[in-house]
């Protein structure tokens, strides 16, 4: 997902406090910033929310790649508004993480020097216009699948950020599918673009949910704390079941020869993505890891004088005002 393989921190707190904390979570009472919380809960949340926030920000890049090439004025505005929303999502999530005692700048520095990760999906390129449709349809679609349940997460500020984000996400998926429909019903070349986009983005989208449950080491504690709601495989299955008919409607072929309807489980059997590729991407060896981090570092470094300049001016103004009083 946007937060993949989030490592849960062990907790060595007073067992009595821990039990009371767990009771509160089990009773669906939200944890708020000033409440007592286990150190492991706090650290895991910082990692998860931070990674989610980074994903929103880095996620601006593959889609932003097409803003200046959008084919109509309306598509340009829709895409720009969509990518801008992702910046907003990053902002809301950083703010939620900040309530846990870490600053946005600290989190940013950790992204920029590779100490923190972002979702593997954003290390794949957008190569033709249909990729913009496919990202909205598949990537935002997968994200929504994870984010809707997270609205009920135990940490208040995180839950509230997710509620705001989910409200905005449904436009994202719909604009993506809307592009796909146009392309799939368009010229031969447009159909080719649409199929090509689906071919390249299908498995990376499945990877977004993280490795299969059997291989997922950190899930149990996080699920107990309700900062992870569903298992990886559960969500992936749900995503496949939702997406296959949508692809069919478009007249596109999901690039999986083993895709078969399984009557017993009432869902599709599908081929797992190549997990070696997934771990390569996480290690920094995806097709665009280098470019993505370069772009974020450049924006941050080039922007330093702006952030400093505006702050210096604000401080001068404040000083002048104090002096006048």
């Amino acid at each position: 997902m946007y937060a993949q393989m989030v490592k849960s921190e062990a907790t060595q707190d007073d067992p009595e406090k821990l039990a009371a904390f767990q009771q509160k979570i089990d009773a669906n009472i939200k944890v708020e910033p000033r409440d007592w919380m286990p150190e492991g809960y706090r650290k895991t949340l910082i990692r998860q929310i931070g990674q989610h926030a980074h994903s929103e920000i880095v996620g601006q890049l593959p889609e932003g790649n097409w803003i200046t090439r959008a084919p109509t004025l309306e598509r340009k505005m829709i895409l720009l508004a969509k990518v801008q929303d992702e910046a907003g999502h990053g902002l809301y999530l950083y703010a939620a993480a900040e309530t846990l005692g870490v600053s946005r700048d600290e989190l940013t520095e950790m992204l920029l020097d590779g100490r923190m990760k972002y979702s593997s999906i954003f290390n794949y390129p957008t190569l033709n216009w249909a990729d913009i449709g496919a990202v909205g349809w598949l990537v935002d679609g997968a994200a929504i699948m994870n984010q809707v349940p997270l609205q009920r997460t135990s940490y208040g500020p995180y839950s509230r950020a997710m509620i705001r984000i989910c409200k905005e996400e449904s436009f994202h998926q719909r604009q993506g599918y809307d592009i796909m429909m146009k392309m799939a019903q368009g010229t031969e070349a447009q159909k080719q673009m649409a199929q090509d986009a689906l071919n390249r983005l299908w498995y990376p989208s499945l990877m977004m949910f993280g490795p299969s449950d059997a291989a997922s080491v950190h899930s149990e504690q996080s699920m107990g704390w309700k900062i992870k709601i569903n298992s990886n495989d559960e969500l992936r299955q749900k995503f496949v079941d939702q997406t296959v008919p949508q692809a069919k409607y478009l007249g596109l072929t999901v690039p999986d020869d083993n895709l078969t309807w399984n009557e017993d489980k009432g869902g599709w059997d599908y081929t797992d993505p190549d997990w070696t590729e997934f771990f390569d991407v996480l290690k920094g060896n995806g097709p665009c890891n280098t470019e993505r981090l370069e772009a974020r570092n450049k924006a941050w470094d080039d922007g330093a004088w702006v952030r400093d300049g505006l702050l210096a001016h604000a401080e001068k103004k404040r000083a002048a005002k104090t002096a006048a009083e």
Partner: peptide
Amino acid sequence: VSEWCGHAPVLEEDI
């Protein structure tokens, strides 16, 4: 101006 999207000095300015 749209060329800035994703590259501004701070999120608030990007938006």
